[in-house]
């Protein structure tokens, strides 16, 4: 009997502690898929993200693509009448993709300086993109145009209230978001970061890598085009000529038969 009593107490304690232990094991950020395959019939994709965070946070989920230099042609008015391309503009570091989902309006998350420090929102990208070139005064205007261009291709987007919050306990909140990846997606290492904001301050809570990879025939053709460009070009011409001639013969034969 005493032995049973001795067992009951630790078991009860264990049962009481288990949910807390389980919760602690849950990561703040989970991705539904770590890899996005770019197959022949890829047409955009949605990556589900969710997790559990302490109560009281507003959240921002930021998905970024590989960063690199970007050259743009700038159109200007000439002679007060014609719009023509005049010169190129180079941005030093621009992510190929930048999608932000937030649980509240961007202005309600934190002061602009905090958002800029963490890299949340377009203005945080501007400093990084324009620190070298262009060197003229129009840098901000040009960056705004770059954002417009990227938004038109759905490569840049800010979805306010794209993060859904659901209270689990008094101390914990479950969240979820669907990151919408556009049809124009290049392969590379993408990153998903979760930021938490409260009391005017913010912090990085967690981050995960997202692998965007070409697969199957798409990967094979891309690799062939990069590695054996000359052979690829000659092959493309020969196939085009063969298709053209075969179609010509097929139509020619059809025409003969008709008469």
């Amino acid at each position: 009997m005493d032995a049973a009593k001795k067992l009951i107490l630790p078991l009860a304690c264990l049962c009481w502690m288990m949910p807390a232990a389980l919760v602690r094991a849950e990561p703040p950020l989970r991705l539904g898929s770590q890899t996005v395959p770019l197959g022949m019939f890829f047409h955009g994709s949605t990556v589900h993200a969710d997790g559990t965070v302490p109560a009281g946070y507003q959240l921002a989920v930021v998905c970024t693509g590989p960063t690199g230099k970007l050259k743009l042609k700038r159109k200007e008015r000439v002679l007060g009448l014609f719009w023509v391309s005049r010169g190129e503009v180079t941005f030093a570091r621009v992510p190929s993709l930048y999608i932000v989902d937030t649980s509240a309006e961007m202005e309600q998350l934190a002061p602009q300086t905090t958002l800029d420090r963490l890299g949340v929102g377009y203005s945080s990208l501007e400093a990084d993109a324009t620190d070298e070139t262009p060197r003229d005064r129009q840098a901000s205007e040009l960056f705004a145009e770059l954002v417009k261009l990227k938004e038109s291709e759905k490569l840049y987007a800010v979805h306010q209230h794209g993060v859904r919050l659901q209270e689990r306990t008094v101390k914990l909140v479950d969240w979820s978001a669907d990151i919408r990846l556009p049809a124009k997606l290049l392969p590379g290492d993408y990153e998903v970061r979760l930021y938490g904001f409260r009391a005017g301050d913010g912090e990085l809570l967690d981050s995960r890598l997202l692998n965007v990879r070409q697969v199957g025939a798409v990967a094979a053709i891309h690799a062939f085009a990069r590695k054996w460009g000359l052979l690829y070009g000659v092959g493309a011409v020969l196939i085009a000529v063969a298709v053209g001639l075969l179609t010509g013969m097929a139509f020619g034969r059809g025409a003969k038969g008709g008469h």
Binding site: G229, G235, V243
Partner: peptide, 21 residues
């Protein structure tokens, strides 16, 4: 086509194939 494929790697054969059909 040959020059662009060899020098700039800018020929997308899948695109060309669908267009040429």
């Amino acid at each position: 086509t040959v020059l662009q494929a060899a020098v700039n790697h800018t020929v997308d054969f899948v695109l060309a194939l669908v267009l040429l059909i």
